[in-house]
Design a protein around this nucleic acid. Structure first.
Lengths: 346, 346
DNA sequence: TTGAAAGCGCTAACAC
DNA sequence: GTGTTAGCGCTTTCAA
């Protein structure tokens, strides 16, 4: 284990004080060109790099942020994280990774991370659950800039980046209405999630906009998974109500719903149109390719990172929550309403 | 921004010296029970947590490792990373995330990370390329424990965790032989990768073991992607040689190969059997579900983390490279050899 | 333009 | 069993 070169070593070698070396690195303009060049050449020769730990201790600034992710096995969070990591890197921040997992003490890992004063801020990429009691409220004790993606806490000191779910749902509903559908069912996500209540609100507003009545019999609450999409679809069919299209509030439930429709002898999209949400990685490879709403996942990460850096570097500055736009992706799972097919019972 | 409580503050409040507080935390047995309890209660009351940065500076130990991943958008690395992160967490190590991306200076990010002396060791999860000239050789200048997954460098000071690709390939070949196949083509990965040369070696050894001749006309070098699997399959078919099964050296190429076979009017597995490698997440959902070889990806991460911690905490101790076992996964893309079908030309 | 002193928060070594 | 001193490697403040 050879010891790394320190600033002292460089100073000796260059025949100056440590202070001058430090200045060459941080305020080069305040050093005489001749001295500067000499120091720089010694630095290069010795391969000196300042010890970031010592620097952090002195500056009370780590240039590191904590990235807390809801689960690295979830494609969604990974995409977001990649966006955030890229942005942070561009701004020369390091990323300390943490999870929501709890350790044997029952203390979530990230709580330690925060208290250790190893990070300048925290990026929390998690589900948009609405919670009051949560390990996360402890976050608020630590007075650190925090940005979350969709995760809301009853506390004002944190910023939120989210997707405009209301508008996204309206877009897909407008598309279905434009295709001639009039009675459209929806399979919601778990209504504990803001994403689900927002998408449901979009579903509602789109009806109002189109001056069409809402039928609560056409709504069924799922839980984001294929299984629940499947069950909800069976449930909706069993109710015996008329409808020609289904808006599943994510792609997984859409896939589950399609399976249920097929088992009931119905074709998608010929007999029933189905739309999803998310444009997850399976959406385009599924049969039929899903009509859905794309979320700018990567950009969520980028935006969140950007906001966090802003909070860190310009404290006090007012930063507003961000609401990102979604984009309708028209594929083949939703088709023109076929009056003839629907004239006869299935 | 309220200032976090320091050890001094706790010391004052408890009426002891800072040293005693430090001892309570690090060598509690060396402190009188009465003092200890008093200090502990002050710590709890003030919510004191030692400043990890200051600790690192003093101890010259960060309890942080650098995780360099080949790409977070690759399911493979993510799985490995999750394994590593879990293991590191169990041992109370933090994880600093980095990538192989190069910044505007052309300097890979992780090089900075290493030189900053912010980490106690490095986990490098990347492709098993064999390279001599590489930014990574710079890694070797820094005298830090390093463990890689499959990535080999002509340097002895790093440990490697890899999968037994030779044996994995032999397993799948034995399976195909057992199904009655005698002439089996292979689509290799890019032969710049050790994984590909190893799997090809397994292909060769299995032939020797079965006393069957090898026909170099049945080999085609691909590049791991679906596209190259597709092209290689077309290429192999165009050669006009007889064969009843194909061993694609990963699942993606297997999928590409199957597409090419279908376009040529051949059914899988009735006319041609196809086997893959990796048991990637699509393998079981594909039609037909792929017969393949499962790699213990998560365990690779765990093992690598384990070895790294060993090197950090017990320097000097001899640690051997690890070679993990694979497991044959029999599904439906490879079937019994049908002599009748192959009696007639396709 | 450069240097000396002090201190960020912590702990190992040595007193008492 | 507890306190004092010193120093990890750096930078800010003040003096020369």
């Amino acid at each position: 284990m050879k010891k790394p070169v320190s600033i002292k070593r460089v100073a000796e070698e260059a025949g100056v004080s440590a202070m001058t070396v430090s200045r060459v690195l941080n305020h080069p303009e305040a050093v005489a060109p001749a001295t500067r060049d000499r120091v720089l050449s010694v630095i290069a020769q010795l391969g000196y790099r300042p010890n970031a730990i010592a620097r952090s201790l002195k500056l009370q600034r780590t240039y590191t942020i904590g990235l807390i992710t809801g689960g690295l096995d979830n494609w969604f969070y990974v995409q977001m994280s990649v966006g955030a990591v890229h942005e942070l890197r561009r701004h020369n921040y390091r990323v300390l990774l943490s999870t929501m997992d709890t350790d044997p003490d029952g203390e979530p890992d990230f709580v330690h991370m925060l208290n250790d004063q190893r990070v300048d801020g925290v990026l929390l990429m998690h589900d948009s659950v609405q919670i009051d009691h949560d390990p996360l409220v402890r976050l608020m004790d630590v007075d650190l800039p925090i940005v979350t993606t969709g995760y809301r806490l009853p506390h004002s000191s944190l910023r939120v980046v989210d997707v405009d779910n209301v508008d996204g749902a309206m877009q897909i509903m407008r598309h279905l209405f434009a295709l001639g559908h009039r009675r459209i069912a929806t399979i919601t996500g778990s209504l504990r999630y803001k994403a689900a209540t927002d998408r449901t609100e979009g579903y509602r507003l789109a009806h109002i906009e189109a001056s069409l009545p809402l039928d609560s019999g056409l709504m069924c609450e799922g839980g984001w998974t294929m299984d629940t999409g499947y069950e909800c679809m069976q449930n909706l069919l069993a109710r015996g109500l008329e409808f020609s299209a289904v808006f599943a509030q994510n792609d997984e439930m859409a896939i589950g719903a399609i399976r249920a429709l097929r088992e009931a002898g119905l074709r998608v999209p010929q007999d029933i149109s189905v739309a999803g949400f998310d444009d997850s990685n399976v959406a385009q490879f599924f049969d039929p390719p899903l009509t859905t709403v794309r979320q700018p996942i990567y950009d969520i990460g980028v935006t969140a990172a950007c906001m966090l850096i802003g909070q860190i570097e310009r404290p006090g500055e007012q930063i507003d929550d961000a609401l990102l736009k979604t984009e309708l992706v028209v594929r083949e799972s939703a088709a023109q309403y076929d009056a003839v097919a629907h004239a006869h019972p299935h």
